[in-house]
């Protein structure tokens, strides 16, 4: 029993170190993009969204740890954007919980499945932010703008997700 607990603790520590490493990697990418292109970093890419998708689909992270990393990623994105604190955090934890539920129902080991799930995650993220903007901030966004935002963000984030999968196998 004690051995099992010790093994679990060791596994937990290594998982935390791996997750921290991945978070720092995406944070570095976010910071580097800021130097070269501010627009690219804020408007067309959602680095922390890609981080959450990567953590859920490519690593063993699930359950409460995934929720916590998603919340941290969301807050970090809010700080970098200078946006309202909590908006990205809310959307990210919702996506993370959705993925938690989905992983219990279907097999997500296949890369193709992961890619389609990532596309769905990024689209859902944009829609959720639109919903928060409408509900909490009383902002209105035109349908065309919403559609174009979804298209661009989904395309660019999916590309970044695939590149990350290739780099961090």
């Amino acid at each position: 029993m004690a051995k099992r607990r010790r093994r679990q603790k060791e596994n937990g520590n290594s998982n935390f170190a791996q997750s921290l490493g991945i978070f720092l990697f995406f944070l570095l990418v976010r910071m580097l993009l800021l130097i070269f292109s501010e627009n690219l970093a804020s408007k067309y890419l959602d680095i922390m969204g890609v981080f959450v998708a990567f953590m859920a689909l490519r690593t063993n992270t699930k359950g409460i740890p995934l929720l916590l990393w998603a919340w941290l990623g969301g807050l970090t994105e809010d700080l970098f954007n200078g946006a309202i604190l909590g908006v990205n955090a809310l959307s990210k934890i919702t996506i993370a919980e959705g993925l938690n539920i989905l992983e219990r129902k279907i097999e997500v080991g296949n890369t193709i499945v992961q890619m389609f799930l990532a596309i769905a995650v990024f689209a859902a993220d944009v829609l959720m932010k639109y919903a928060i903007a409408t509900a909490f901030l009383e902002e209105t966004v035109s349908g065309n703008l919403l559609l174009s935002t979804i298209t661009i963000k989904v395309a660019s984030n999916t590309l970044l997700f695939l590149i990350s999968c290739a780099i961090m196998r």
Partner: peptide, 21 residues
């Protein structure tokens, strides 16, 4: 159950941050 409880907690926290601004 713990997972759902954590999600609700974080949801409320994020909502609080948005509304308390």
């Amino acid at each position: 159950k713990k997972e759902v409880a954590s999600y609700i907690l974080l949801f409320l926290l994020s909502t609080a941050l948005i509304t308390l601004r």
